[in-house]
């Protein structure tokens, strides 16, 4: 095995382990921390693929901002006592059904899709770098990019509207 493969397998192992912890941890804070670890490992994978920009952005946005907000919310709600009451048999059943369907779908998709193979000979190692990404985003994928921005903008405005207090309303 090449060293890079060892790194890959170790990273993958940690990713899976922490991802499983996210689901199984009883304390929500532990869940969140495991999720952060998962994001880290994913960034590691990006770096292995020489997509440094993606790796950094993944950490900044997901680990650095979104998960902080998660943690923030959990702290506010103070979910310290692990209340299990919400997990009735019905919800467990529903979870199994939904999860099963998702898995089947994914399996079908993976079977149907033909992954493009990359030959080591003509692979451009600079594909994942920020310059390439930028050029690609602002040329071939301009429309989806702008649409996504608008979507985010709308979501942001919506969130502000939802969070806005009426005059005379109280905090929180």
């Amino acid at each position: 095995m090449k060293p890079i493969e060892i790194v890959f397998y170790v990273l993958t192992g940690i990713t899976l382990l922490s991802a499983i912890t996210v689901v199984t941890a009883r304390n929500p804070i532990h869940s969140v921390l495991a999720l952060i670890a998962t994001f880290f490992c994913l960034s590691g994978h990006y770096i292995l693929m020489n997509a440094q920009f993606l790796a950094a952005v993944n950490i900044i946005v997901y680990a650095g901002a979104i998960m902080v907000l998660f943690l923030f919310t959990i702290m506010f709600l103070n979910l310290r006592r692990e209340d299990e009451e919400s997990k009735t048999n019905l919800t467990k059943m529903a979870a199994v059904v939904v999860g099963g369907i998702l898995m089947v779908t994914m399996l079908l998709v993976f079977r149907a899709v033909q992954l493009p193979s990359v030959s080591e000979g003509n692979f451009d190692a600079r594909t994942g770098l920020v310059e390439q990404l930028g050029i690609l985003l602002y040329s071939d994928y301009l429309l989806p990019f702008e649409l996504a921005s608008i979507l985010l903008l709308v979501a942001m405005v919506g969130a502000v509207m939802l969070g806005k207090r009426e005059a005379g309303d109280r905090h929180f």
Partner: peptide, 22 residues
């Protein structure tokens, strides 16, 4: 020396808050 040094610092700094929060 990495070509996304600025982003690297931003990433690490944004993680710094975890220590305080946790």
């Amino acid at each position: 020396e990495i070509n996304i040094g600025v982003l690297y610092i931003f990433g690490v700094v944004s993680l710094g808050v975890y220590g305080v929060m946790v």
